[in-house]
Design a protein around this nucleic acid. Structure first.
Lengths: 250, 250
DNA sequence: GATCTGAAAACTGTTGACAGTTCTTCGGGC
DNA sequence: GCCCGAAGAACTGTCAACAGTTTTCAGATC
């Protein structure tokens, strides 16, 4: 009854249209723009301009912004607009602490239930990271995928969504370049150790290692920030015109 | 210039209006209705009806729903509406695991920075809970406040918001009565132990105790569910007409 | 009585317009 | 040169209406 073979572009469009509302599509597009850096922290989202650009009216745009507000990617100021959120170093460090705890639980759960095929997949990722150890552009996406898979395989849906949301928020960190730097070889050694604990179904050890892996990342970030601060002592941060300013965040 | 004394209702309304948009007010009202149980899991949110009832148009209602969707209190199905989410026992248990991890981090951080006045406040809450040990209606809100304060005092904003969101989601658990039951005396003994560790600034112990406190709550819930299941063996869950049904939750 | 069908009702998705607020700009005064 | 203020532009908040989809329900059919 159902011809699944190669749906035409229009059919695909219709199928999307049937399961996704414009607001959802807009939200995803904005998410992409924010995470990719196309929209920078502090930028305002001009509703009319976005509406024109995406070929929709302002309604769906506003709905999308409300969603983004709740997932903390933007901040809405009454009568002034919605701004891409700006998170401080302290915010970033706080997020690392939370992520570390979540990653730890993921490890404990995963060690109990991991399957051979999942192990193989993770092992493959570690292997590829090892080969890409001196090419950050190849390494980075593999690293992201490795972490995402570890959380996904834990089987705890709520854990996964929470973790993903935090990871996405970290993209807002203004000096994001820092996040991906850090010694890749050391990091991958930790990846191997995690894999080993998982293979042995050692729940406690996997949890500890995964918790510490994130905390090590936090440490690396702190060291980098300190180093940079010494090299170029605190450029006077120019006040943005946006009300979204200040990193106090309530 | 500014007469602060007893602002009239209209002034208050205007002041609110200046800092809160209708969508925000609607979202808060809907949140209240959901958490209070006025809107039950599975119920549909009729946009026109709500608009009439709250005296606004459908725009702000829709925006509010998008926010609620992102915080996982409702589920939106294209062309059919938004439904109050229904979470399964498994979902609830998953949430307990995540909460436990977050609560643990909160404990570690809090033990390092807790102030005498914060200790006094927490101690007072435990004392009052102890006196209310056989009156669940008095005990329950104190218990909620105690947990909230522990997280709030941790000083990690992101941790607080994440924790709060999960706690709110737990209200959706269909057999929510169960959550508040459980041996209050035992629970308060744990509260005292936590307080003790915090007073001694014993970070590791506070973290462990707080983690285990939530896991103990999870255990209590599981035992209760099992007990009830034996008493009244699994009533055939009637399929709701709503598409939101099924607890598989992707 | 149960089931199918199709029209009407109810509801969601989206849009364009209007009201009120904020931002910009351009003179004028010091 | 710098500050202040008012008019205009730009933008957000809200609404009412239209289009398309889902649900309901009365009547026909078996």
């Amino acid at each position: 009854m159902n011809h699944d073979s190669a749906p035409s572009a229009t059919v695909t469009a219709l199928r999307i249209r049937r399961t996704e509302t414009l607001a959802t599509l807009v939200r995803k597009e904005l998410e992409r723009m924010i995470v990719s850096g196309e929209l920078k922290a502090g930028d305002r989202l001009n509703e009319s301009a976005l509406a024109d650009r995406l070929g929709v009216s302002r309604g769906p745009i506003r709905e999308a912004c409300r969603g983004l507000e709740q997932s903390r990617l933007v901040e809405v100021v009454v009568n002034r607009g919605t701004f891409v959120r700006q998170i401080s170093l302290q915010d970033a460090l706080d997020i690392y602490d939370v992520r570390s705890a979540l990653f730890g639980v993921a490890g404990e759960a995963l060690a109990r239930r991991i399957t051979p095929s999942q192990l193989a997949l993770l092992s493959d990722l570690v292997e590829r990271m090892s080969r890409a150890a001196d090419d950050i552009d190849a390494y980075y996406p593999l690293n992201v995928e490795y972490h995402a898979k570890l959380v996904e395989f834990s089987g705890n849906v709520r854990l996964m969504t929470t973790y993903r949301s935090l990871a996405q928020e970290l993209h807002l960190f203004r000096r994001r370049g820092l996040v991906s730097e850090g010694s890749m070889a050391v990091s991958n050694r930790e990846h191997r150790a995690i894999l080993d604990a998982l293979a042995k179904h050692d729940s406690a050890r996997a949890g500890t290692l995964m918790r510490e892996h994130i905390l090590a990342g936090k440490k690396r970030l702190m060291n980098l920030v300190e180093a940079k601060a010494e090299a170029a002592p605190d450029p006077p941060r120019r006040r943005r015109r946006t009300a979204a300013g200040g990193s106090a965040s309530a």
